[in-house]
Amino acid sequence: MSSDQFFGLYNYWIVVFLMMTGFYIVIARKNMIKTVIGLNIFQVSVVLLYITMGKVTGGTAPVIPPALAGQHDAHDQHDTHAAPSGHTPAANATAANETVDHGHADHVTELAHELAHELTHDATGDAIHGVTETAGVIYTNPLPSVLMLTAIVVGIATTAVALSLIVRISEDYGTIEEDEILQMDRRQ
């Protein structure tokens, strides 16, 4: 592995580092709060993994520039919302079908599939993944971010449940150190 490749994949190294840190904390820490913190770090690393795979170099936020938006409105009024959300190759194609020049539809479909397949060659993928080229504007793939919104919500819910459980445990046992609790249970 050349150093270029090594540093080129820096985002993954960060993810792996965070993931392992979180995982280690979960396993090694007996304090329940710390376990939950570890769990959170672990989850955050996954969030980063998703975000980083959705990022397109030079891509902008998947919001249609006002100028273009106007065109689209004129072109096909009720379909504007579909344009930026095209996330998968096929979706890109369909989105393109609906919003971009119809004559180019086939070409775009092919392009999209090629991109998807190139991806499978190259696990790093971030540079090209989810490129949405609409009239010269490159968008970042928004779908991973959307997925992560859900995942974050799930994560928060998990943390909330975990913390409330800890509160109850602390009320019942008077401690949140797992070792001490196990000892107390064994003594009974």
């Binding site: 995982f23 795979m53 991806l119 993928g125 993944h129 995942a151």
Partner: peptide, 22 residues
Amino acid sequence: IMGTIGATFLLIGIGLLYQMTG
């Protein structure tokens, strides 16, 4: 704790599959 780790593993797997196939 166990369940969340399991689910997060699942999430990682899903992410990687998405990365491959879009």
